[in-house]
Design a protein around this nucleic acid. Structure first.
Lengths: 403, 403
DNA sequence: TCCGATAAACTCGTGGCCCGAGCATAAAGG
DNA sequence: CCTTTATGCTCGGGCCACGAGTTTATCGGA
């Protein structure tokens, strides 16, 4: 999940060995706790097929290691009352950062994966060094407060990412920014992911696409972003720069895209497209322009028509993606959901018309994302947790505590 | 891998339990043997970090269960000679079938995953019932010869697949054909996969993309097929109908596609596109037409130009896919490789021009697939083996032998 | 041809983790 | 208060892998 660790301290051999089987049961229990915060011990045991003896042993071990705490469950019928599993108050933590166009937020998540926002700020200018320094200071503060409990730093950023840093970002105006400076301790692993890819993963795990094996998340902000998520893991490519659906050439090849290519889908669906259809110059902020256009469309037929053309281009491209990937569910984030609602007939016609015939009887549901602006933060926390909740992660934690 | 089991006899509970950890070491050893046929016991032990004691124990257990055989290794230096690991001559087998437009082939693979073709035939007509019956008879013969050693039947078919059968196939002229009749024993698991998706998986595991985390395989036959392969598993979507890249709307929206949509990429790259550019009627067999066009292009400037336009359309679409998925390597199968070779300048220019600027300094290598016509068969065998080489698969095998 | 060096296989005691069976415990219901 | 019910706890046993020590098979040089 997210880009593979800028500087994970993984000097040890791969160790696919069975010694690591030590953590199998413990991991299964912790994953259940994560997947469904508030599960009872009895419930976990039943779902995993553990005997009560094993459950006792595993929970005891995990409590000993400060990975899990138990509180009495609210009585719910006859029988001896069971306990509810929680993250341990002294257990491992993950720092999740969401770095957006105007601001950033820093959250801390325990093993249940729920990010709690600890700091937030807007950045006046977007000078990479200053923004990174501000975030790094916030990370340091959290790190100082929690010490060795912080096990990973995971950053969602509105940019094309790769190799543990930002490769390029139109919305931030950044090029090739290394984010390693965010780490308060160079031994900590750093995960950097595209915000939309992480939001997609979050939707697939906790949100509108929960339970789907293959989910497609598509967002419109400035251009189109999104990611395919397979079994909870976003498909982010070899360098972590995947998910740039907006640069599939669904559009007019004569239109040049700032990315360097031409005919990009990006140009046909967002505020820039609406402005072009209206014969206006490219708006400085396509997002707010698009929002305003949706509002104006109710009164102004020309605007309504321009919005309809954008919705149609969006539906046509989305149909192509459904043809290509056969997702079980599609979630729409950002401006995508209001756009399809505002021009539902055009969107629907383009979507259906773009689907291969055999898909039309049972197309995947297209639903609104439910995590909204918190998706990326949830996804970043999940990416960090995916690292903590491994055999290696747990044995490192155990070694530090007992050693 | 491939579509999730038409009728796998998986009535048992998920069983994520640690009892299954019993097979971890054994599975790791068998996977090594599969990944690199001809490995030595000492080599496996070293790579997995096993002690010689564990290696002795595991190999002994696997020999006992007829999962593995050892032969003396050719002496290669000082020290006590080690042994080479092979599939056991009485070990489990997988039946792999490749069902193509004109013919089908049936192969048998042991745990090393190498398919050995046992039967093959062309189908005069393509009446689904007759073809299925002929294949079913061949499967029955193999099943009779090997008895309980056959653990799965895995079919690669030139069709859109889903839910354990064919959904639709233009090249075969089939609609909604259930392939469950191929099973000689209803308790056997059946895997049905698109041939190009399986070929992609095979390329990523054994072929030109071996070792790549994210690989993109693209083929031109009639239209464009292919699949993204992540960590050895093809991304086949929710119903197994993924990989239809040819139906991304990269082309002229005015062109209607037989699939029901319009502007499909399919129409711009294969023999139909070349014929259209030459003002000729759609060829009955676009594949042979395209082959002939490539040959004629050397002499005929008009044909050369038409081929160039197809190569350009192919390169442009491929660049879009690279933008969207960031593969570490791209493999070309079928007509795709000769097409780009025949019109390398046009292909190269379109590919580079279609890439986002930041990708251009280090684009993924685009290489020819090396498994050729055997890719789908390899992939189908791999899909079947993926089922055998699981904790469930091995414990079922062990239970049948000892019980 | 023998002998040391070398690499790898074999043996056996140990420990971790989980299972099963039986016992103990905490509520709800009559 | 006793029964029912659901669950937690205890303890012996099995399985798998680890580690250390021993044995075996080959190579290279004297």
């Amino acid at each position: 999940m997210a880009s593979p660790a800028g500087r994970t301290p993984s000097g040890r051999p791969p160790s696919v060995r069975a010694r690591d089987a030590r953590w199998r049961g413990a991991l299964a229990v912790l994953e259940e706790m994560r997947r469904e915060p508030g599960v009872t011990r009895a419930g976990v045991a039943q779902r995993l097929g553990l005997t009560t003896g094993s459950a006792t042993e595993i929970t005891a071990r995990l409590r000993e290691l400060a990975l899990l705490a138990e509180t009495p469950a609210a009585a719910s019928g006859r029988g001896r009352p069971t306990t509810v599993l929680h993250p341990h108050p002294e257990g491992p933590l993950v720092v999740a950062v969401d770095l957006r166009q105007e601001d950033w937020r820093l959250a801390v998540a325990a093993l249940d994966g729920r990010p709690h926002v600890a700091e937030a700020a807007t950045h006046g200018d977007r000078e990479p060094g200053r923004v990174a320094a501000a975030i790094a200071a916030a990370v340091r503060r959290v790190h100082r407060r929690h010490g060795g409990r912080v096990r990973a730093v995971s950053v969602a950023v509105a940019a094309t990412v790769g190799h543990g840093g930002v490769v390029q970002s139109a919305v931030l105006g950044w090029d090739a920014v290394d984010l390693a400076a965010l780490l308060p301790d160079p031994r900590l692993p750093l995960f950097v992911g595209n915000d939309e890819a992480l939001a997609a993963a979050a939707e697939a795990r906790y949100g509108a696409a929960a339970g789907a094996g293959t989910a497609l998340h598509v967002t419109i902000e400035v251009g189109v972003g999104g990611t395919l998520v397979v079994d909870g893991r976003p498909v982010t490519g070899a360098t972590g720069a995947g998910g740039e659906f907006g640069h599939l050439p669904f559009g007019d090849p004569a239109l040049r895209c700032p990315c360097g290519a031409s005919g990009c889908w990006d140009l046909t669906v967002d505020g820039r497209a609406i402005a072009r259809h209206l014969g206006e110059p490219p708006p400085p902020d396509p997002r707010s322009y698009a929002q305003a256009a949706l509002a104006a469309a109710e009164r102004d037929a020309a605007v309504r028509s321009a919005v309809g053309r954008a919705a149609s281009a969006f539906g046509r491209g989305l149909a192509g993606l459904i043809n290509a990937f056969d997702p079980g569910v599609v979630t729409l984030g950002g401006f995508a959901e209001p756009l399809r609602t505002a021009a539902a007939p055009e969107f629907g016609a383009a979507l259906t018309g773009g689907l291969m015939r055999f898909r039309r009887p049972a197309p995947p549901p297209v639903v609104a994302a439910v995590l909204g602006g918190d998706g990326a933060l949830h996804g970043a926390a999940a990416a960090g947790l995916d690292h903590v909740l491994t055999e290696e992660g747990l044995s490192a934690w155990a070694a530090e505590r007992t050693g």
